[in-house]
Amino acid sequence: MFTHIFIYRFKCLIRDRQLVFWTLLFPILLGTFFYMAFSNLNNEETFKPIDAAVVNDSAYQQDSQLRMVMQSVSKGKDRLFNLKTASNQAEADNWLKQDKIDGYYTSGEEIKLTVKETGISQSIMKSFVDQYRTSSSAVTNIAKKNPKALQNGLLKDVGEQRSYTKEVSGGSAEPNNVLNYFYSLIAMACLYGSFWGMKEVTDIQADITDRAARVNMAPVHKLEAFLAGSCAALIILFVEIMILLAYLQFGLNISFGQRTGYVLLTALIGSVLGISFGAFIGAVIKAGEGLKIACLIVVTNLGSFLAGMMYMNMKYLIATYVPPLAWLNPVNLLTDAFYALYYYDSLHRYALNMGMMVLFIIFFCAGTYLIVRRRKYASI
């Protein structure tokens, strides 16, 4: 009997075009829009040389040290400035007014910076001139006290920068800010599977739909009908998530790391989480189907927002200021599990996320069972 119910529930569910659209086609369309919007996000973070100028007056010509420094930072692929030389200050002011440069330097007793507005480029130019002033002052003071230091490579030592901290990566993969959008999209798609779970619970509650009334009239235990239908819904949802993963990886070149088996396991657990969550909401809320759907949409979309799908920094703000909320958000747990597989070599963080999701599944399933098994009807 279980197999018979499973087959017919599968046929019934797969013909629901609205649910297929929201759980399969909508995430694919949203993923495509994400790719179009964020594909060049990492490239835009690459540093570009700053358009700067220096006034080539008599003071600049006499300052050989400044000329040497300016030439050194304006050469090569990793140069700091695209340096232009102005014949006088009026010409530099004209370039600045026309936005041809971000600022210009003027020599004298000390180097000065002139800018029209504030911004990242102007801040970098100010940091450069501050560092030059500090280094120049240090060289002058040391040279007064010990003239021989100039002959022992003092200028080279002052200009050399050393780092005494070592950057240690959490994993072998390169950090990628874009991936969180796509991982949260997959998590949202898994939680949208709650529509399937809600449908299964709704179709066994005789006081809600006529179909459920007919099911309760049949000589089959409603929990058996619910389990058969839930298995059919789980298979449909899991196949949809597999299609979404394949599209993201092979169609949009979104990386999931080298742990394919764990990625598939995460997708399966996420699918079970979505089905069980929908069934729980369908059992707890006794009102009509419209209110249940509204509740699922609000919870899923709010969870997606807190997981960083709409605003990436929100995920880190929640983790920093409201850590318990990050662990109580199923969408965030799924998102973090995918990112842990991609970025971290250790499975510790991944195991924590998976463990929390399993606890949620147990809670939802137990709650659904306790509610549904006690619900009886005086007449149908």
Rank of each mutant, 00 (worst) to 15 (best):
F277I: 02
T46Q: 10
I285Q: 12
S276K: 06
Q71E: 13
A267Q: 13
V20G: 10
Y183P: 10
Y35D: 04
V55A: 05
N177A: 11
E200Q: 11
D130M: 01
R162K: 13
F305N: 07
V372W: 00
T140K: 15
L306M: 04
E45M: 15
K116C: 03
M357L: 14
F21G: 04
G171L: 06
N253R: 14
M36E: 01
V331Q: 04
I362N: 08
V54K: 03
Y8H: 15
L317N: 04
S74D: 01
S135H: 08
A307F: 13
A267R: 11
S74L: 08
V215H: 01
F81K: 03
L96Q: 03
L252I: 12
R211N: 12
Y344V: 12
A287R: 11
V201A: 09
N88C: 06
T134Y: 00
F26G: 14
F34M: 06
Y181H: 15
V299E: 02
V263W: 01
S230A: 13
F364S: 04
I361T: 12
Y60A: 14
F256S: 08
T260Y: 00
M217A: 15
I208L: 05
F280G: 06
T335P: 02
V139H: 08
L244W: 04
L325S: 03
F250R: 15
S121F: 02
I269S: 02
S72L: 07
S137Q: 12
G197S: 04
Y377D: 02
G282C: 07
L306C: 05
F128I: 12
T23P: 02
R67P: 00
I120E: 13
F360L: 10
S163M: 10
G278M: 04
K292C: 09
I204A: 10
A351W: 00
V322M: 14
G282R: 03
S135P: 02
P147W: 02
E160L: 15
K112Y: 08
Q18V: 12
N146Q: 04
R9V: 07
M354T: 11
A340S: 15
G270T: 10
Y262V: 01
V201M: 03
L80Q: 05
M312E: 07
F338C: 12
T266Y: 00
E117M: 12
R17L: 08
V20W: 08
E174C: 03
Y183V: 08
L30M: 14
A307G: 13
A294Q: 12
R373T: 14
F338I: 09
A206Q: 11
N152L: 11
Y321I: 09
L30H: 03
S107T: 06
Q258P: 05
G270E: 00
I7D: 06
V284G: 10
N329F: 06
T114F: 03
G229M: 06
G108H: 04
F38V: 15
I208R: 09
Y321P: 05
M188E: 01
I285F: 05
R79V: 00
N353K: 09
I275P: 07
M310L: 06
Q89T: 06
A52K: 08
L325D: 05
F33W: 03
A90K: 15
I235G: 13
E45S: 15
A218H: 01
R214T: 09
V239P: 02
G367C: 10
N177W: 00
K77S: 11
N88D: 10
K292R: 14
L29Y: 01
